[in-house]
């Protein structure tokens, strides 16, 4: 299964980013082949609608699940339109969370926040 995680750096040893929309990179990981690809998140530098842009990147990567500590409502609506499941990460380790997902111990993110709009000089 292809999954995505917001990460701080382009490395498996990096940490999970606390923000989804403004994360600098996304890790696209294949749980079967264990292949990893890192993508730039254009949402990180966008004026507004960062979550939408980030979610579009995730949708276009054809993943089945997103592992993230949090997610805004606009991003969530894009992801749900693409039937991508959103799981809540339990700590900031990439490997721990991938392992937890494979073991079936990760739970779905049920808390979708209203977003942090209007903080970029509107």
């Amino acid at each position: 299964m292809r999954i995505a995680l917001p990460v701080e750096d382009k490395s498996m040893e990096s940490t999970i980013c606390q923000s989804f929309g403004r994360a600098p990179y996304f890790l696209i990981y294949d749980t079967e082949s264990q292949e990893s690809v890192f993508l730039d998140n254009q949402g990180a530098v966008s004026q507004g609608g960062a979550g939408i842009k980030a979610a579009q990147t995730i949708v276009d990567s054809k993943v089945k699940a997103l592992l993230t500590p949090r997610c805004g409502e606009q991003a969530a609506s894009v992801l749900s339109a693409a039937n991508i499941k959103i799981y809540r990460t339990t700590n900031d380790s990439i490997r721990d969370n991938i392992e937890a997902l494979t073991n079936g111990t990760l739970v779905l993110l049920d808390e979708i926040h209203a977003g942090f709009h209007n903080h970029r000089g509107r």
Binding site: G43, S46, Q47, G48, G49, A50, I52, K53, A55, Q56, V59, V78, A81, A82, N83
Partner: peptide, 9 residues
């Protein structure tokens, strides 16, 4: 540039 549009499914 405000990402008001997305294309999904």
């Amino acid at each position: 540039r405000f990402n008001a549009l997305a294309y999904v499914n």
